[in-house]
Structures are given as C-alpha cells and as structure tokens.
Design a binder for these strands. Structure first.
Lengths: 227, 227
DNA sequence: TCCTGTGAACAACTTCACAGCA
DNA sequence: TGCTGTGAAGTTGTTCACAGGA
C-alpha cells in the first residue's frame, strides 16, 4: 500500500510532457478566481482535445466529479505532486555567458519547486560577479558545494565544445538530472537524465514548415515550370 | 515532375525533429575530414538506433550506397535542402530583455540559413540600443519593416502577459512562423505555425524523473513505512 | 442530465529482420 | 560480403464513443 498511487503507476512520457502546461493553466485560472473547470474548458485553454486531457488525468488518479468537472485547486495540487513539485529542487547553472545570465535572472525559475543554488563559470572575468545574489564561481568548486548543499539539477549553458566536459563534471559530482542548452549530444552513463533545449533545432523545424507552405502556395507556378 | 522529390513526399514530424541533429553531426564530421559514414556510425554519434536513422533518411530519398554507407557531404546537403536551409530565413526578435539579448548574440543563430533582420522592444530605455549591429526599435514599426524587407520567422522573447499581443502583431503583419519563448499558449489562426521553447516545462519533466529515481531508491524503506 | 473515466478502434512511430544491390 | 532501404511486426500514443456515477 503506497501513500501515493499516482507515483506507483506508469505515467506515459507524452502525458508527463503535457502536465506542466495543465498546471500552468490551472494556476492562472486559480488566480482569476475560477473554482471549477470541465475537461472541455481546460482543454480549450491548453489547446488539446478534451478526451486527451481526461485520459492524461486518469493516469494520476480520479480527481474529477462526474457531471461537474474538476476542482481547480485540487487538480493543480495533484499535478504538482505527480510532477514532484511539492518538494524543492536545487538547481546549478554552468556557463554564465549571455544565456546563463538570462536563465539566472529568469523569474519563471523561482516560481515553483526550483531554486538556484549555484552559478559556475571558469572565466576569471566573471568569477565573483553576483547575479540574483549568487556569486559566480569556478566549476572546480561545484563538487565540494554539492557535497555540502546538494544540487538536484544541473543546467549547461556553455558553448557546444565545452558541454561534454561540463556534463562529465556534473555527473562525476553525482548529479543525475541535466538540462542542456548547448547544441551538442551528451553521452552519459545510464541512470542520468538529459533533456536538451535547442534554439537552432526549433528554428530549423519552423523553416521546414515555412518552406512547405511557400511550396504549396507556388504549386501552380512550379507545375508550369516543371513542364 | 518535381525538381525535388523529397519535398513532395510526406516527411513524418518525428523525422523532421531529428533531421537537425543529423545535420549538425554530419557538419561536425565533415569538418573533421570524414568523407563517409555508415548508418551504424552516424546513429551512434547522434544517439539513435541505426534502423531509425535509415528509415528517417529513406523519407528524403535514396542517398546511401549499399555495402558502403553515406557520403557525408552529399547527405548534409540533402538534409539541408529538405529542411529548407538552402535559402535564407530572415528572423525578427521581439522582447529585448535578458533572453532577447542572449538570443540576438547567440552565434548558432547566424550559422546556417538564419539571419537576424530586426530587434523590437517597446521599452524606451532600450530603443536605439544596438546589438550585433542592429538597432532595437518599437514593435509598431515591425509591420512597415516587414513590408520593405520581409521577415519569415518571429521570435517572441517577452514576458508571458505580453506574448499574445506580440503574437497578434506578428500575425497581423503577415508572419506565419513563430518561435515562442514565453510560457504562454498562443492562439493563432490556422496556417500559422507556433513552436514553443520553455525552460520551466523542461525543468518540471526533469523533476518528475528525478522524483521517480529517488522513490525507486527509497523503495525498500517506504515499503517498510507503508506496512 | 451532464461530464468524467475508460475500453476499444485507430493512427503514428519504432524496431525487427531481411531482400537486394554495390 | 557489407550495408542500405523497406515491408511487416510491435509499441506507444490519440481519438472515439459510451457506460456509469453525481
């Protein structure tokens, strides 16, 4: 008998990827004083089908009321719990160039569940600068810092060539969740979780679709040319 | 008869999402002087299965040689063509806070196919500042700029509350590809393509998996507690 | 009656395994 | 022989449609 059935079940990856969106929307509704939503309404806000939303939520447990809908606050809490946001996750950022600076001062960071505990960069010009009250320190000190005050998630915001070495340092220190902003594939031992956020990949996907659109628009024309 | 059969076929979304990764890796190999790769080797570099790689590439056409592998340069060119990177995509960034600054000076931007043509922000304190040689101007001027020198892709780097209004302005100006960094769901008319990059969603997904790991590690303990 | 929760049908994607060509 | 390209099988994710409880 487990304290939390939601955590016992297998939650599909596709569902996990959507939960943050549901949570964000529910938080906004709660701020607006909305007490209850139907799957139809919430799905419309988030931009998914209501059946999808209901199936997703069914993986967490049964928190809706038939004929009525979902209590906004309860559902937000249950999603937070499923995602593990009821505890605090200490985050360290490595690489304090433009992007690192932007990430450190990004307000959304602090919002819920995440707390920046360390900023690292080996450039002496940056060392000891303070951002949001935290000093930038050499990467070599991360391991000792982690031993004193554990880091749960490491964020890599360095240029691509440095990323693997930084990653190795993080893994070596015992950190097993990594968010990588560098355009590089990282190799890590099994058990370590890496997610990548990449601007240029996203731009290229947009370019692909933009190209399709312009080809479709010019179809008649190119058909003539091709004759 | 079309000039480019790759563009006629349907390429699955999942494949399109991986093409940029293949391209990046091939470019690196080309720089290192590698002339030819097998699907096995390339897949290992990218971190996918070789069968997946071959199936993905088969959607573009047949550019490999049986018994040998793929010519690195040819394959890179064909992927570039499929993604539409043989033409140049003019990009505008709206919202020049920390993130906008970081994006504007991000070198990966210029690499291939993308070129920043405009930076916009309504904060008078920022207006006329120059980044990478481009002046920051009020959003109201975007539409006129677009008419003179077209913008293909709009990047939204504003806070969430401003995102929808900025999006409406971009769409109103006739831009139909948008990359959104604000943590907000945008509603757009059909035909407009929005992709979102969101730090906190990624962190929350990491937190979910980290939580699973720590639960699994503490399983024996919690089993005892649950009795 | 209304809206949730879910089995069943369907669609997309991945992996397997091998035919076929250099 | 060696590696690509691809049908077929297997897996995962989505949508439908309705049973069932408030």
């Amino acid at each position: 008998m487990s304290a939390d059935p939601a955590l016992r079940r297998e939650i599909p990856d596709a569902t996990v990827a959507r939960l943050p969106e549901y949570l964000r929307t529910l938080s906004r509704l709660a701020e607006d004083g909305v007490l209850s939503v139907s799957s139809e309404e919430l799905a419309a806000e988030v931009g998914v089908r209501s059946a999808q939303l209901r199936k997703d939520l069914s993986h967490l447990g049964s928190y809706g009321v038939r004929g009525v809908g979902y209590d906004v606050e309860t559902l937000a809490l249950e999603i937070s719990r499923a995602l593990g946001l009821t505890e605090d996750w200490p985050v360290a950022i490595v690489g304090m160039g433009n992007l690192g600076h932007a990430l450190a001062s990004y307000s959304g960071f602090v919002t819920k569940g995440f707390r920046i505990v360390g900023l690292y960069d080996d450039d002496p010009a940056l060392t000891d600068e303070r951002i949001v009250g935290i000093a930038i320190r050499p990467l070599a000190e991360l391991s000792a810092d982690h031993a004193v005050d554990p880091i749960a998630i490491g964020v890599i915001a360095t240029p691509a060539p440095a990323a693997q070495a930084v990653c190795d340092a993080l893994v070596g220190a015992g950190i097993s969740s990594i968010l990588n902003f560098a355009p590089a594939v990282l190799s890590v031992p099994s058990g370590v979780d890496v997610r990548r956020v990449d601007l240029s990949t996203e731009l290229q996907i947009l370019a692909f679709h933009a190209q399709r659109k312009s080809l479709a628009a010019g179809d008649l024309q190119s058909a003539v040319v091709a004759q």
